[in-house]
């Protein structure tokens, strides 16, 4: 049957015109000789998701081990708290592997930003090691910096496309994401230093960390991510 807008004959397997999306009257959508198979996107996405989380969990496991090793070993040269590395790795992985690909694939500006951030955090850590004191400020500086950079870059990318509503919407999503990361970072710090501080704080931190983790899982599985992706695509 013909699409009234595009004036092309649409194969009977399409109920909507593949070019403009308008409904084609008279097409029943049943399989024709020319029709393709319907791809089960769910299973494809699940595969990718499983892979992502597997890597994430492996990394977290390794860094927790490293933390305990460095803390329990008094001969460790600089008394380095690998936690700082762990933070940057955790953050980097989370952004790069879980969130970025779907949102901003092929956005060079983003990749560059993250690379710069990585280099910067490693440098900061090394400066701190040289001073043989790991200041708490990094715990605040890094996430704030990261949050600021990401929101800014994102806003620039979106504004260049002149889609103001999208820009605002995603800036908010990103800001929330960064605030969560910020909290998670401080809480992780508390948890890793559990032997030094009040156990109540550790417990609260643990709860916050768990809720952050829950947020990520919900975001990934509830369909919110898909809908945001879809929205970005319009």
């Amino acid at each position: 049957m013909k699409c009234n807008t595009c004036c092309v004959n649409v194969d009977s397997s399409h109920t909507n015109c593949p070019l403009c999306g308008n409904i084609v009257l008279g097409n029943d959508g049943c399989q024709s000789v020319l029709s393709y198979c319907k791809v089960d996107i769910g299973s494809l996405k699940k595969e990718v998701r499983t892979l992502k989380y597997r890597w994430l969990l492996i990394c977290i496991f390794i860094l927790v081990l490293l933390n305990f090793y460095t803390k329990s070993n008094p001969n460790f040269a600089y008394k380095t708290e690998i936690f700082w590395f762990s933070f940057s790795i955790f953050f980097y992985l989370l952004i790069k592997e879980v969130f970025l690909p779907a949102f901003f694939s092929k956005r060079v500006i983003w990749r560059d930003c993250i690379k710069a951030l990585m280099i910067m955090s490693v440098m900061l850590v090394f400066i701190d090691i040289q001073n043989s004191s790991l200041t708490w400020s990094i715990a605040f500086v890094l996430p704030i910096l990261a949050g600021f950079c990401s929101v800014l870059c994102f806003a620039i990318v979106k504004l260049f496309e002149q889609e103001l509503l999208n820009a605002i919407f995603f800036s908010i999503v990103l800001a929330v994401f960064n605030i969560f990361l910020f909290f998670a970072n401080i809480c992780l710090l508390f948890i890793f230093n559990w032997y030094k501080i009040n156990l109540t704080i550790v417990f609260v931190s643990l709860c916050i960390c768990l809720s952050v983790f829950l947020y990520f899982v919900l975001f990934e599985y509830s369909g919110l991510k898909d809908s945001t992706e879809a929205k970005l695509h319009v």
Binding site: C3, C6, D11, C17, L19, Y36, H233
Partner: peptide
């Protein structure tokens, strides 16, 4: 990409030239 504007324009041009175009997409 899911976008189809170029395809639409190209097939639209061919239709304007007087051809019948039958379209199918996966």
């Amino acid at each position: 990409s899911k976008d189809t504007l170029v395809e639409r324009i190209v097939f639209g041009q061919l239709v304007e030239l007087g051809l019948q175009v039958g379209v199918v997409r996966n």
